Simulated scan of single mutants.
Amino acid sequence: MKITRRTFLKDAGLLVAAMGLEPTLLPKMADALEEMAYGRAPILWLQGLSCSGCSVSLLNSESPGPADLLTRYLSLYFHQTLSAATGPSAVAAVEKAIAKGGYILVVEGAVPLGIKEACKFADENFADQLVRAARSAQAIVCTGTCSAYGGVPAAPPNLTGATGVSIALNKAGLSRPLINLPGCPAHPAWIVGTLMQVLKVGLPELDALQRPTHFYGHLLHEQCPLFALYQKKHFAENLGEDGCLFKMGCQGVITQADCSLRGWNGGVNWCIRGRSNCIGCARPEFALDPQFPFFRLNEDNLF
């Protein structure tokens, strides 16, 4: 497949703008796209305990779009949702990738350490497969809150002992370059942009929770269009009312992500613009405290 340099520069420009990076990085990002397009930067995508929501989110990518991602840029060794291979062919593809090494390992979903048999690939527990694959990876990208911190699979009572990838690898005594992209699901720009940066620029600047600071460096609350209403203490107390959604349980005050600036579904909408609370899906504690509901409703006005 022959693609012109102009195409790489155009798509790289869209990514650089979406990520808020310096324009001087444009040539390197174009090089990264070229490496991915011609198979010089393969990706092995493995799935643990998950709903495949981050894979679906990836297919909502805007720049480049899903067709370009799958046919032009993503040199996928294997992806359980997108790959056509099944049975022995799928197992062989994964084994060949692990033996060759040098790939970026993308992990979607939590790791069951309490009941390892709760998630298996062929005859191997996912936890064991993850460790083998991580040893041969140049870097690991944990896509989604389940992969990063445990997420919904780790919600109490967590019978499977589900946990995030970094904890699973630490328990196995393995240390590898690792990036967390929490979100339920992770935004496609977070995924694609991070892969581009790892390929050509190196690991992005990370915070203490191993999240890229250019995506997770600010509270949603600080960038919320309802922030002025919060300052005026003009709060909605029931569904459909005008006002800041803080009293309805909005977790934007404790959630770090750039949803309010980036938007979802091509920038069309996001939770607050749709008059729903931020449920804090990018928080490490997401779904882990049964006493901390996603929504608070005024029970006096329920029917």
Score class of each variant (00 low, 15 high):
residue 175 S to G: 09
residue 188 P to I: 07
residue 187 H to G: 10
residue 178 L to H: 09
residue 198 V to C: 00
residue 192 V to A: 01
residue 202 G to H: 12
residue 191 I to C: 00
residue 170 N to D: 14
residue 174 L to I: 03
residue 185 P to D: 06
residue 193 G to F: 03
residue 181 L to Y: 02
residue 167 I to H: 11
residue 195 L to E: 06
residue 169 L to P: 05
residue 196 M to I: 12
residue 167 I to G: 04
residue 192 V to C: 05
residue 169 L to D: 03
residue 180 N to P: 04
residue 179 I to R: 07
residue 181 L to H: 06
residue 184 C to F: 06
residue 171 K to G: 08
residue 184 C to P: 12
residue 179 I to V: 15
residue 188 P to N: 12
residue 174 L to G: 10
residue 200 K to N: 10
residue 201 V to L: 15
residue 194 T to D: 01
residue 194 T to S: 07
residue 191 I to K: 02
residue 197 Q to E: 07
residue 200 K to M: 11
residue 183 G to Q: 07
residue 199 L to I: 15
residue 198 V to F: 08
residue 201 V to G: 09
residue 192 V to P: 08
residue 178 L to Y: 09
residue 166 S to D: 07
residue 176 R to D: 03
residue 167 I to R: 15
residue 198 V to Q: 00
residue 185 P to G: 03
residue 187 H to L: 09
residue 199 L to T: 08
residue 192 V to I: 08
residue 172 A to Y: 12
residue 187 H to A: 04
residue 200 K to D: 08
residue 182 P to I: 09
residue 191 I to Q: 02
residue 175 S to W: 13
residue 171 K to W: 13
residue 187 H to R: 07
residue 170 N to C: 14
residue 188 P to S: 10
residue 185 P to N: 09
residue 163 T to G: 01
residue 178 L to P: 00
residue 192 V to W: 09
residue 197 Q to K: 08
residue 181 L to N: 00
residue 180 N to K: 04
residue 167 I to D: 10
residue 201 V to A: 10
residue 169 L to A: 03
residue 166 S to M: 13
residue 194 T to V: 03
residue 180 N to Y: 02
residue 184 C to R: 03
residue 168 A to I: 03
residue 181 L to S: 02
residue 202 G to N: 08
residue 192 V to T: 02
residue 202 G to K: 06
residue 192 V to L: 09
residue 169 L to N: 02
residue 175 S to M: 14
residue 200 K to S: 15
residue 188 P to T: 07
residue 180 N to Q: 07
residue 173 G to W: 11
residue 191 I to F: 00
residue 197 Q to R: 05
residue 166 S to E: 13
residue 163 T to L: 05
residue 202 G to C: 14
residue 202 G to P: 05
residue 195 L to V: 07
residue 168 A to F: 06
residue 198 V to G: 07
residue 173 G to F: 12
residue 201 V to Y: 10
residue 189 A to W: 01
residue 199 L to H: 10
residue 170 N to P: 08
residue 198 V to A: 04
residue 193 G to P: 01
residue 174 L to C: 11
residue 181 L to Q: 01
residue 197 Q to I: 06
residue 171 K to A: 14
residue 168 A to P: 06
residue 187 H to N: 10
residue 178 L to D: 01
residue 197 Q to T: 07
residue 189 A to Q: 11
residue 177 P to M: 08
residue 182 P to R: 05
residue 164 G to E: 05
residue 186 A to W: 00
residue 175 S to E: 15
